[in-house]
Structure formats: C-alpha cells, structure tokens
Design a binder for these strands. Structure first.
Lengths: 153, 153
DNA sequence: ACGCATTACATGCAAATGCAAGTTTTGTAA
DNA sequence: TTACAAAACTTGCATTTGCATGTAATGCGT
C-alpha cells in the first residue's frame, strides 16, 4: 500500500479536482474516437445540438452549449467548410443568422450517439446501474439543468 | 414549461456532456479567482501537488496530475520564472530533474485551499451534505483513484 | 426621425497548445 | 565496450484559443 499524505487525500477528494481530471480524460478519449470519423470535439458538440434542433441563431447555439460567442462563430465556419451546416438569413432580422444542418451533416450526426454511448459506458463501468442513475442525477442537480431523465448509456 | 425534445433530454443526461459542461464552468471560475492572486490554472495544479510532495521528477509530477510531458516541462519553466519552484539535479540520475518548491512557492500554495473550498462549495451548494459525500464517492469510483476520504469542502 | 445604446456576429493578433522531432543520459545485450 | 533502444526532458513550429475590438443591423427614447 502506497503512503499517501493527508493533503493528497484532500486534493483527490476535491470536487473540482475530480471533475477536471475526469473531464480531461473524457475529452482525450472523445478526441481519439472522433478523429476516426474526421471531426473534432467542438464540431461534435455543435453537430449534436443542431441535430436536436437547428434553424437557430448562432447566439442561441452558443448559449445552449455554453460556449463563448467568438468560438461559435468559428465553429460554424468549420461546419460550413465541411459541408455539415449552412447559414441562412433570419427572416426576422438581418443581423442574425440561422444555422441549419445539411443532409451530410445530419448523416454525420447519426454516427455520434454510438460513440457517446461507448465512451460513457466505458467510464460508468465501475458503477452499479443504480449508482449510475444516482451519479447522473446528482450531476444534474449541480449543473442545474431543470429536468430529470435516465442516464444515456 | 419549455418544450424539450427526447434527443435533448438524452444529451443533457449524458455523463460526458455533464462532465464537460461542469468542468468548463469550474475552470472558468477558477481562472477568475486565480487571476486575483496572479496565477493561472496550470500553475495552480502544480503548486498544489508540489505542496503535498516535492522533490519529485518532472515526469512524476506530470504523471500524478495526468498532464502530458511537454506540458509539465513548460509549466515548471513558469514556476521557476515566478520564483515558486526550483529545479535541482537528481542525485540518482543526471537525466532527470527534481522539482522543489521555494519558500515563496510554499507561501503562495497556502492561499490555494481557501479558493478551492469556496469554488467547490459554490458548486455543491444545491446538494444536501449526504449527497455531496455520495457524489464525491461515485466520482472517485469512476476515476479509480484507490482511496476514499471525505469531500474537501 | 434622429441619435445612441445594444444586439449579433466576425476577426486581428498575441499567447497558449500540441504534436513531432531533437538532445542528453541511462540501461541492456551481444 | 560497443552498439542500440529507451528514458527524461526540451523545443520548433503550425494550429488553436481568447480577448479585445470592429462592423453592421436593430430597438428605443425623445
């Protein structure tokens, strides 16, 4: 058994520390998996959201994903370059732009849930089914997204 | 009540999605808090770890924090520039380097636990005490860091 | 209808990042 | 002991990021 200090125990039990550590691991995994299908993490997020709901403004897209505005702007550039999305003028306002998935983008988006499930499952493996539900519920409560649902495995 | 799609519910309940979202928020908060005392997140992590245990090689430091090697190399550069740490030759091997905190670094590290507690607490606020313990325990299990302890609030 | 703050988005540019390739030192095996 | 692989760091360089700023369109008060 390795000797661990009180300080180490404290750090390793810090909510922030655990979140950062795990998020980095997940991000790394996703990066590898997504590279196989030729996209990166930021394209992935936007593709997922747009497949739920497109025809929204860039601002709305960024707001829903909690990404800064300049970031969304450039990500949409990439989506358009890759032929996954297109910008259309907003009939209600000439200063805003609506983002729509193209058929190609929609097709690509269909590949994503499988990857997500696999990655999620690989992380949740050490937990019992009940614990997984509990964990998602607690994270939800912390994130303050006001709805509940079963974990997406 | 806002209308939400099944797909949206699914995404928002994805372990990976929640982790990324929360980690980004925490990171942003920490960035602001740390800017007040003149350091950034990567310096922060290393300072914390070294305050637990210094006199380790850069490789070991990177391994413990799960940071890539080139990253550690540059972070230690910054730590040294700022006078928080110093590199000393490893008596056992001329190709490795031991990193030690300076008194200044040790002093700076003392400011950190307070900030960590505040940030952690601000996130865990929506949870009951029991739930906080449960959440940390579950995250621990997922992270597979082999020890248990009470949450550092 | 005029001025002016605000919204929505884009971008220039400095700094940070990440990969791959480089250097020096050590282990190992013939 | 020599040669070759691997370890421990470092660095060059292209890409990415992020802040601050710019541009165009809109709402709003008077």
């Amino acid at each position: 058994m390795t000797q661990i200090s009180e300080a180490q125990r404290r750090r390793q039990s810090s909510f922030g520390f655990l979140m950062q550590l795990l998020a980095r691991r997940i991000d790394q995994d996703m990066k590898l998996r997504l590279a196989e299908i030729g996209i990166d993490v930021k394209v992935f997020s936007n593709l997922m959201l747009l497949s739920e709901k497109d025809g929204i403004t860039q601002r709305e897209l960024g707001r829903l994903l909690e990404f800064p505005e300049y970031f969304t702007s450039r990500t949409v550039d990439v989506l358009v370059e890759k032929g996954f999305a297109e910008r259309r003028p907003d009939p209600d306002s000439r200063r805003s732009i609506l983002v729509y998935l193209t058929p190609k983008g929609r097709k690509k988006a269909k590949e994503l849930p499988g990857i997500i499930s696999q990655v999620n499952l690989s992380y949740l493996k050490p937990l019992e089914l009940e614990e997984r539900t509990q964990l998602i519920k607690l994270l939800h409560k912390v994130a303050d997204i006001d709805q509940d649902g079963d974990p997406a495995l």
